[in-house]
């Protein structure tokens, strides 16, 4: 099939899947909902529980799941190509550890750091993610001009370990309930409760996706190696920088919105590659759309299976992702 047709086919298929997930998810849940009452204009919104369940509880979290899923899956694709490592995830380079440290500080030392209707936890986690990105980049470029992916990987892993131990240390000093709440944050939570956090994360995600749109062909060539890509006309350093910063931005925004939901960034890219091959012009849009659909599905399940209790969505993705990851490892070796 010619490239143009393949791309159109992919976007239509996976786009249809994502759109279907977006439309169906708000309609199902633990509480029966009458669509007629949801859109009944004669009842004021403040007195219409059906409309509020639809517009306050379900729709925002569906949108949040779509954005977080899309961002993490796309960031996973980009990080895997950048690091030339199929086992890389959006969290490999320490972005999520930085975000977790930020979120944890905000949970344990609650200060009134709300800004424009966004509460302190997402703000602190986003700041933590940016801090981690800056540190990893500085470490990876300190010795020389270029961007060594090996050093990047080592810096990321080291930072992950270091932040994790700082987190453990602060948790150790915190009281039991606070520790419990920080642990719970790590499992992801898409019940955002309003559109404000979504609108706050959206601009960063849009910037990241604008960058993603120019990357795919250069990412294809990067899989041959940096020298081979350069010899074919790729500005390798520019591509690596753009990949690193845009994928980190998408990850940071996603984690601050929904917590570090695990495994999306590795399951989705690999599933998509199994279906459509490795060409990033196909893989990147397909993974973006499939990531959205996949996380919406997981979140819908997580709010229903134990209702009225929430099953943390990260547990569900990990239950699916753990065995998948193992299968991937065994298949490769």
């Amino acid at each position: 099939m010619p490239m143009r047709r393949r791309m159109a086919f992919t976007v239509l298929t996976f786009g249809g899947l994502a759109a279907a997930a977006c439309l169906i998810a708000p309609l199902i849940g633990s509480t029966p909902l009458s669509l007629r009452r949801v859109f009944d204009g004669s009842v004021p919104f403040a007195e219409n529980p059906d409309a509020q369940i639809f517009f306050v509880a379900r729709l925002p979290r569906t949108l949040a799941a779509a954005l977080v899923g899309a961002s993490l899956a796309a960031a996973g694709v980009v990080f895997q190509a950048l690091l030339r490592n199929p086992l890389a995830t959006p969290f490999t380079l320490g972005v999520s550890a930085g975000a977790a440290l930020g979120a944890m500080l905000a949970i344990i030392f609650p200060v009134g750091l709300a800004f424009a209707g966004v509460s302190s936890v997402p703000i602190a986690s986003f700041a933590g993610a940016l801090g981690a990105v800056a540190i990893v980049y500085a470490l990876a470029t300190v010795r020389r001009q270029g961007l060594s992916t090996t050093v990047l990987l080592l810096a990321g892993i080291t930072l992950n370990a270091f932040f994790s131990s700082v987190i453990l240390f602060i948790q150790y000093l915190a009281d039991f309930t606070q520790t419990f709440r920080t642990v719970r944050w790590l499992m992801g939570d898409l019940d955002v409760g309003s559109y404000t956090p979504i609108l706050a994360a959206l601009p960063f995600m849009l910037v990241a996706f604008a960058a993603f749109s120019v990357l795919p062909r250069a990412l294809n060539l990067l899989t041959l190696g940096a020298d081979a890509a350069a010899a074919r006309g790729v500005d390798v350093l520019r591509t690596q920088r753009l990949s690193f910063f845009s994928a980190s931005l998408a990850t940071g925004a996603a984690v601050s919105l929904g917590g570090p939901v695990g495994f999306i960034g590795i399951i989705v890219p690999h599933l998509v590659r199994l279906l459509v091959g490795s060409d990033h012009r196909i893989v990147l849009p397909a993974a973006t759309l499939f990531g959205a659909a996949f996380l919406i599905a997981c979140d819908t399940a997580s709010r229903m299976v134990m209702a009225p209790m929430e099953l943390p969505v990260g547990i569900l993705t990990a239950l699916i992702g753990g065995p998948f990851f193992l299968w991937l490892l065994l298949r490769r070796s």
Partner: peptide
């Protein structure tokens, strides 16, 4: 880089792909 690549191609000693193409 692009201009040079139109004039000079390079074949390295060994090529390993990170993904299946």
């Amino acid at each position: 880089r692009r201009e040079v690549a139109r004039e000079i191609a390079v074949v390295p000693q060994e090529t390993r792909l990170a993904f299946d193409f």
